[in-house]
């Protein structure tokens, strides 16, 4: 059986692991939810430029005093780092589609073994709209998914085939859950890391998707830093 982990531990474990993926100078867009936590865990010696699609390249942490004239995509007030630039939406999405964004980190409702992603709408529920997600996944060089391994009710989120409307087809590069890390290469889904104490057979049972196991399977990075 997979261990039941505290919600906060889950969120921070996933964020901490993703924060290790970026090279110095990488341009990264963070979605809402767990992805927003990623900026807290960028390792020392690495500087990442955070882009928000509503028009800021070089977003910094929440300022001491809120100023609604500087907000991020989730509507929260942000600071601008020294060296930041402010741009219009057309320019911002030009950067995204044009291959100038190294990584986008997003949540997921479903990911399947072909790298398809569904994260914008559950038919039958109120339709929120896709916002910038379809552009982000079609344009970013690397699409990193931050998600719990299963739904709150214990259902599979890592599927053989997505059942919900897609955000992007064959776009996912990497999935990080509280138990494991998967990478997608050449149309194959490959398990590359397992969190400490997690059994491979338990992961297979909790994962509907069929995946290969990397010959270099290792312990999930970042977990050693947990208190």
């Amino acid at each position: 059986m997979l261990p039941v982990l505290d919600d906060e531990l889950v969120r921070h474990r996933i964020a901490r692991r993703i924060a290790l993926e970026f090279e110095d100078g990488a341009v990264v867009n963070l979605g809402i939810g767990i992805p927003t936590l990623v900026s807290d865990y960028i390792p020392e010696g690495i500087q990442v430029i955070f882009q928000t699609e509503n028009g800021l390249v070089g977003a910094g942490p929440k300022p001491e005093k809120d100023d609604l004239r500087f907000i991020g995509a989730g509507g929260r007030c942000l600071s601008t780092i020294p060296g930041a630039s402010l741009i219009a939406s057309d320019f911002s999405f030009g950067l995204i589609r044009g291959g100038h964004l190294d990584s986008t980190v997003l949540g997921a409702l479903e990911v399947d073994q072909e790298g398809n992603l569904a994260n914008w709408w559950v038919p039958g529920k109120l339709v929120p709209g896709m916002g910038g997600a379809m552009d982000l996944v079609s344009g970013a060089k690397c699409v990193i998914i931050a998600t719990t391994h299963c739904t709150k009710k214990g259902g599979a989120k890592l599927m053989k085939k997505c059942t919900l409307p897609l955000t992007g087809a064959k776009v996912v590069s990497m999935v990080v859950t509280e138990y494991a890390v998967f990478r997608f290469t050449g149309g194959r889904m490959i398990l590359s890391e397992l969190a400490p104490g997690i059994d491979l057979e338990d992961i297979r049972r909790a994962t509907e998707a069929e995946f290969e196991v990397s010959p270099d399977l290792s312990e999930m990075l970042g977990c050693e830093k947990e208190q």
């Binding site: 939406s89 057309d90 999405f93 589609r97 916002g131 379809m134 079609s138 344009g139 087809a169």
Partner: peptide, 27 residues
């Protein structure tokens, strides 16, 4: 999609007959 939304407006404002975007292909 947001990037398509603004690019369609740009097309309208800059005299283009439309734009070609990879966003949303396969969805």
């Amino acid at each position: 999609p947001q990037g398509t939304f603004v690019e369609r407006i740009r097309a309208g404002g800059f005299g283009l007959g439309g734009i070609l975007t990879p966003t949303g292909v396969g969805t």
